[in-house]
Design a protein around this nucleic acid. Structure first.
Ligand SMILES: [Mn+2]
Ligand SMILES: [Mn+2]
Ligand SMILES: [Zn+2]
Ligand SMILES: [Zn+2]
Lengths: 153, 153
DNA sequence: AGCTTATTGCAACCTTGTGGCGTTAATGAT
DNA sequence: ATCATTAACGCCACAAGGTTGCAATAAGCT
């Protein structure tokens, strides 16, 4: 039995693949790698974080622009959330089916940009005036994380 | 009685001047103009907004970098709030003594970046784990404003 | 008025993100 | 298995937001 090297590189992610295929778009190595990475991440990651994490492996690093496009596509397809962190840099997180990150709150460090999950549930959503289209809402807690607080006393 | 044109340009803002002088730093036309503008603004403004608003008047437009520095100084001095909007652009608002904007909530448009005051009070602040230094917290509501919803149906 | 130095203006540079376009490869049909 | 279609990619140049270094200016003090 003979399998091409290429096909083997996509095999280990059946759930990822079908989630992407379900959107009607093409399943590509870039999309699979990035989406899988977001699924395994501890918190929301920015473009830079992801570039670094991807460049570690054996596979050829994907193009900067392709990564931007993959991330925006994941967000547009509803597979990821996109939101600016406290420094104004966009961060992406997998849109888990159980909506875990949507239920609890997060702390955003204004120094390093880090996002930390807090074990507290979100306040309930408010009603909006006529004409406003709600996309997302969360309690946004900003400050300095323990790590950065140590460096800047 | 003779008054220099320069002094006259600062005279109309006694409260602004003393607030700046109280920080111990120098009172300059740039700081007075920008701080006064933030005080009169309807909502948080970005660098671009402020540049446009300032360029309207008779006074010579201040340098791009100076404006960045004045804004960051206002924030560092506690006279203004600095926060990224839904598009990742920083916006500044006067830190009113009565903390009006800190009590009610805001809607942030992901299309135009606009910030809208909502007539609803903020949820109460949460307790943070050891080591986290809180700077600010607010319920962050993102979506599309009525104006942009009309343009992108 | 003169001294000191915080603040400004300017130029160059950086980071994050986008648009255009020719080439490649994922998919459906043969 | 091969072919045709066209979505997606790589590469380039560019835009917007923001920062750094440094010489010239002017706010505050005497
Ligand atoms: Mn930005
Ligand atoms: Mn408000
Ligand atoms: Zn931090
Ligand atoms: Zn809008």
């Amino acid at each position: 039995m003979k399998t091409s090297a290429h096909a083997a590189s996509l095999a280990p992610f059946p759930a990822i693949e079908s989630a992407i295929r379900a959107t009607g778009a093409r399943v590509t190595p870039s999309r699979v790698r990035v989406y899988a990475l977001l699924q395994n991440a501890q918190g929301p990651l920015c473009h830079r974080d992801i570039e670094r994490l991807l460049s570690g492996g054996a596979l050829p690093a994907m193009d900067r622009v392709t990564l931007y496009r993959v991330l925006d596509w994941l967000a547009a397809a509803g597979l990821a959330h996109k939101a600016a962190d406290a420094r104004g840099v966009f961060r992406f997180s997998a849109a888990t089916s159980d909506g875990e990150h949507l239920r609890h709150m997060h702390f955003r460090c204004t120094a390093c940009g880090g996002v930390f999950c807090l074990d507290m549930s979100q306040p309930s959503l408010p009603e909006l005036p006529q004409g406003f289209r709600l996309a997302s809402a969360e309690f946004d807690i900003r400050g300095v994380c323990p790590d950065c607080a140590g460096k800047h006393p």
